[in-house]
Computed example of a mutant assay.
Amino acid sequence: MVQNYVAYVDEAGDEGFGKLGAATRTAQSKWFAIGAMIVSESENRDLPSWRDSIMSDFPKKKSRDLHFRELKHDQRVHVCTILAGKPAGACIVASNKITLLTHPKRDVFKQKQHLYNYMTRFLLERLTSACKKKASLEHNDTAHLTIVFSRRRGTDYQVMRQYLELMRDGRELFRPVRSIDWSVLDPADIAVENHSKRAGLQLADVYTSAIWTALEPNEFDFCEPRYGKTLTPRLLKHMGQRLDCGLTLIPPFGKTPLSKEQEEFIQYVRTFKEKKGVGPQNPDPHR
């Protein structure tokens, strides 16, 4: 029997890099992240109850939708702590847009949706690999992945499907080192939903925004790594390593400029290991 998985995809930050400068409210973000929460078919049915349980802890909030950016610091810590104990995997791809200012293909990345599609490819490569590995090792079976994107203004998802089909059919000019596992994902199995309609998208927002906040300087030029550190146990890993699997930097670690604060967070993710007998009660089934 095929093992079915669902990945909910959301983003944090923006794609633009024409107005990168001092960290202010009017500048474009220095980092852009696309992230996913991935669950098995059975766990997918539990996501509304996860979200509702979290929102019940915030009785004064008028909206019952979960938006990370609308939470206060202590509420963010609380939500991340709860999700760190849930049986879900997380995968985030983060682009340091400062490096695009001098990139030889700068004009290409300035084209509408190009950076988004480029990073989505990295994300899907890692998600399909994790699904195939889990289904094979734990169930001696094949895997199938459904992707649900959070609808965002200005994104043409038909163009994205065509981009994925081009890769699937081997019509690229340059073949990548890695590739999406097309035995796991069919471009037709991509859905687009509004954030408010799916609990999974609201939870994916937490994972993605938590990691992004650890990398993106605020208006006072410092980052907040606590949320990302709390959720680090949920990041997918390959051969014991979360960096370049659960969290992928573009350019990669060692080639992308990082502040001392950002590097400390990345080193935390890179060297994180669970202690025996310590950690979430529900082990991550996607590692």
Results as ranks from 00 to 15, higher is better:
residue 226 R to P: 00
residue 114 H to Q: 15
residue 208 T to C: 03
residue 173 L to I: 03
residue 221 D to M: 07
residue 204 A to D: 03
residue 51 R to D: 04
residue 195 H to Y: 04
residue 91 C to P: 09
residue 59 P to E: 07
residue 32 F to I: 02
residue 172 E to N: 14
residue 169 D to R: 15
residue 247 L to K: 08
residue 245 C to Y: 10
residue 57 D to K: 12
residue 257 P to F: 09
residue 4 N to R: 15
residue 144 H to I: 01
residue 77 V to A: 09
residue 272 F to P: 00
residue 187 P to H: 10
residue 103 H to M: 06
residue 142 T to M: 12
residue 222 F to G: 06
residue 189 D to R: 14
residue 23 A to S: 13
residue 81 T to W: 05
residue 44 N to S: 11
residue 225 P to R: 01
residue 14 D to A: 04
residue 10 D to T: 07
residue 219 E to N: 13
residue 72 K to H: 08
residue 117 N to L: 00
residue 137 L to P: 01
residue 152 R to P: 07
residue 226 R to K: 14
residue 26 T to R: 15
residue 138 E to A: 12
residue 33 A to G: 09
residue 267 Q to T: 09
residue 29 S to G: 12
residue 256 T to Q: 10
residue 217 P to S: 04
residue 210 A to M: 02
residue 241 Q to I: 03
residue 38 I to E: 02
residue 189 D to S: 06
residue 151 R to N: 14
residue 65 D to P: 08
residue 8 Y to R: 00
residue 278 V to Q: 11
residue 107 D to V: 02
residue 35 G to L: 08
residue 52 D to I: 01
residue 147 I to D: 04
residue 260 K to P: 06
residue 73 H to E: 13
residue 28 Q to W: 07
residue 93 V to F: 03
residue 90 A to N: 05
residue 146 T to C: 06
residue 262 Q to R: 08
residue 152 R to S: 14
residue 100 L to W: 07
residue 95 S to P: 06
residue 187 P to W: 04
residue 99 T to P: 11
residue 125 E to A: 01
residue 163 Y to P: 06
residue 214 A to N: 06
residue 228 G to D: 05
residue 81 T to K: 14
residue 138 E to G: 05
residue 189 D to E: 12
residue 174 F to H: 08
residue 104 P to C: 04
residue 160 M to P: 00
residue 270 R to T: 06
residue 84 A to K: 12
residue 39 V to S: 06
residue 10 D to W: 07
residue 109 F to L: 01
residue 94 A to W: 08
residue 139 H to F: 15
residue 219 E to F: 06
residue 166 L to E: 03
residue 2 V to Y: 13
residue 115 L to P: 02
residue 205 D to V: 01
residue 97 K to A: 05
residue 132 K to S: 13
residue 9 V to L: 11
residue 144 H to P: 04
residue 30 K to Q: 14
residue 102 T to M: 09
residue 3 Q to K: 15
residue 96 N to A: 06
residue 238 H to G: 03
residue 234 R to P: 05
residue 66 L to I: 04
residue 70 E to G: 07
residue 127 L to A: 04
residue 206 V to L: 11
residue 19 K to M: 07
residue 284 D to C: 13
residue 230 T to L: 11
residue 218 N to W: 08
residue 190 I to N: 10
residue 126 R to M: 00
residue 180 I to D: 05
residue 39 V to E: 09
residue 33 A to K: 01
residue 177 V to T: 10
residue 28 Q to K: 12
residue 214 A to S: 15
residue 81 T to G: 13
residue 146 T to N: 10
residue 170 G to V: 00
residue 215 L to S: 11
residue 79 V to D: 03
residue 41 E to R: 10
residue 148 V to D: 04
residue 199 A to V: 05
residue 100 L to G: 03
residue 264 E to K: 15
residue 62 K to A: 08
residue 245 C to W: 10
residue 116 Y to S: 03
residue 74 D to R: 14
